[in-house]
Design a protein around this nucleic acid. Structure first.
Lengths: 223, 223
DNA sequence: CGAGGTGTTGAGATTTGTCAACCTACGTGG
DNA sequence: CCACGTAGGTTGACAAATCTCAACACCTCG
């Protein structure tokens, strides 16, 4: 777990100092809110167990899922800018997070150069991820979006030592739809089509990827 | 200009040190590439004059405009994560940037706490901006997207001391369409509709906002 | 065991995309 | 300095994708 997280590449004494900063862990039940939009920002949260979604709210109240975060991910990064959270984070299952007080993290990052760089990489990686979601939302059709989502998921699960071919979705069709800019019916239909095409085995949220290459082909072909 | 940029809130000696790091300025002609996807990352670019777009490329070559940056904006932030640029940046008009070598910036940020915090805020603000684009792409219809884009533009121009009601678009209809996840014809039609509704005066890229409230209403009403 | 949340599927409506024709403005070169 | 070529912009008609509404099935949790 550590190699994914902020401590990666730190020496023993730096690790010890980081442990002094990260003293609290918090548990959230499935469905519990980790933070709300507008909450004062004071800390980042590193996911130790479980997963969560982040969502931005439109002026008219519509919710747009903006991220799906799992083990080792850092959430709350968008709160730094204005000292308050711009989106909300909700646990998708029973979840445990490390609370990382941001002021103290900045202090420590000034002393520990690798930690500083890790933090910058996390922030930058989040920007890159968001840009890929923009690409998805701005230029892909429904099948491509879902294929891209599933492939991204399998890669991240694999990187964490889980099976890439069999997993349980933690989001409802509606949440996946929101994330992908589609309606839940479209998600459901697209799952069914992938099933009919022999690409997936779909049983509710239990997914088995039978033909990952077919998913990949949906993305790389010009249409 | 300085108050928008990294130096905001720095004392005289820190400013001097920053000036020692930021020694090069580069000019780009309209249409010139500032960096390409895949280029090794070594520096951030702060826009001093002009504007640029950033764009991510899909596996099949499609281009998705992911950002529209102007005076005071920092571009290249997505390159930190993997030491190479994940997107490309192209000047939309004759543009001048400060080149900020990132390694040196990190060094200085460890010594100058306000600079460190400014950098974090820039990174975080970019994340927030991207999330708002996701909201736009994922849940708004064409009119709402263009209204949101125009309002965002007017706010940013105003913050920089330019007129909020009259400005020149630096992007083609096609680029705006890519940014908003729509085709150029849809952008053109939506401009025409806003024109017919008395919300805008549109002459090619010359825009005059006649009724900003109407634009705002397009966003805040539930449908 | 029942209820409510979640998921599937169908039919028809709506939005946006596609293709095509045409117009306009701008810059380049004569 | 003007003319022309070309990139960019507008508009129309039609096609395609996705959404909407509705009915129903399923599954999980108390």
């Amino acid at each position: 777990m550590r190699e994914f997280c902020l401590p990666s590449g730190l020496d023993a004494s730096a690790l010890q100092e980081l442990d002094r900063v990260v003293t609290t862990r918090t548990r959230f039940k499935k469905g519990a809110t980790i933070y709300r939009a507008g909450d004062p920002f004071s800390a980042l949260f590193a996911i130790r167990v479980g997963s969560c979604k982040t969502a931005v709210l439109a002026e008219d109240g519509r919710e747009q899922v903006a991220g799906y975060h799992m083990l080792g991910d850092l959430v709350g990064l968008d709160g730094i800018a204005n000292e308050r959270h711009e989106c909300q984070a909700v646990a998708l299952e029973d979840t445990e997070v490390c609370v990382i007080p941001f002021g103290q993290l900045e202090d420590l990052a000034r002393q520990v150069s690798p930690l500083q760089h890790n933090l910058h990489q996390f922030l930058s990686r989040e920007i890159g991820r968001d840009q890929n979601v923009m690409l998805l939302l701005g230029s892909m059709r429904a099948e491509e979006r879902l294929a891209s989502f599933l492939l991204n998921l399998t890669r991240r699960l694999q990187a964490r030592g889980f099976s890439a071919s069999e997993f349980v979705l933690r989001m409802t069709r509606e949440e996946i739809g929101s994330y992908l800019g589609l309606k839940l019916e479209t998600i459901s239909r697209t799952f069914s089509r992938f099933h009919d095409d022999g690409i997936l085995e779909v049983n509710q949220r239990q997914i088995r990827v039978l033909d990952p290459e077919a998913l990949q082909n949906l993305l790389s072909s010009p249409c």
